[in-house]
Design a protein around this nucleic acid. Structure first.
Lengths: 143, 143
DNA sequence: CTTGACCCTAGAGCTGACTCTATGCTTTAG
DNA sequence: CTAAAGCATAGAGTCAGCTCTAGGGTCAAG
């Protein structure tokens, strides 16, 4: 019982736009579907699973290039799981770094706000552009 | 004792590229400097402070558009501090949301890796693309 | 006088993931 | 039959913040 879907129905079923499906096809994340004589794309129902998978992988922070690689492995018959495991670990490392970065930005923002509270009416000095924004630690960490 | 700087010296002093200075000028973050008869930009030393300020504000997560607004207020004679305070608070809120998002991604990645550990040799099912990546909670939160 | 470092402009290219446009054909409901 | 909805393509535009190119002019040292 596999219903065939035109692009609009497939897109609605997966919650993406038809542009996204065509874009994924160009990018190689979806294989070129069958066509009607008039040229309309005809998708199998499985395309919805694939789109959902892409969404899930994206939600984990994978790029489309990485997802494409995972799908390629799957398509070539091998289990993508080892690849996925490796990439998940790499994502975790990158994520920790990003969390650290954001936490230190948060610390600096709080420090700036504290400064602002302690000096409710800051003098209008000529040199500083804004006396609230005076940070050191973040700049050294820039890339 | 204000040394005049050509664009290369100013860029080096602030640790950015000359392209960045010209880009900031186009974007309105730097005012158009004096020129030599040959058309060379001649900066006052204060441009380095301004560039450092931009870097600091960027490190706090401000966009160039926001920084431009802060600089505009400064330039127009008013203290930008109220504006900065408001923006800092908004940044803090956005930052908390982003931290929350990243933490929940981290949670999901850890769950996926746990799943992978519990099933060292996952069966090659026909339906799932990768049995490791099976998440629910992140998708609902998408934008 | 030549070399090399520096400067100029206008504009394109980069990343990532879409998003949309223009123009025109196809399908379906009434 | 007609009008609306849907589909096709190629290609441009979006966001942010640069980054770089092509093709040229300027300037100081040797």
């Amino acid at each position: 019982m596999k219903r065939a879907l035109f692009i609009g129905a497939a897109a609605r079923a997966a919650g993406v736009s038809i542009h996204t499906l065509r874009y994924y096809e160009r990018r190689g994340l979806l294989s070129a579907p069958q066509r009607t004589p008039a040229g309309y794309r005809v998708y199998e129902a499985a395309v919805v699973d694939r789109l959902r998978f892409i969404q899930q992988a994206q939600a984990l922070g994978f790029t489309l290039a990485e997802i494409k690689e995972i799908l390629r492995l799957k398509f070539s018959g091998r289990s993508p799981c080892d690849c996925v495991r490796r990439r998940l670990r790499a994502r975790l490392v990158a994520l920790e770094a990003e969390l650290k970065r954001l936490r230190s930005i948060r610390r600096e923002i709080r420090a700036c706000l504290d400064r602002a509270r302690r000096l409710p009416r800051l003098p209008h000095t000529a040199s500083a552009i804004c006396p609230i924004i005076e940070i050191q630690s973040l700049l050294a960490k820039q890339r």
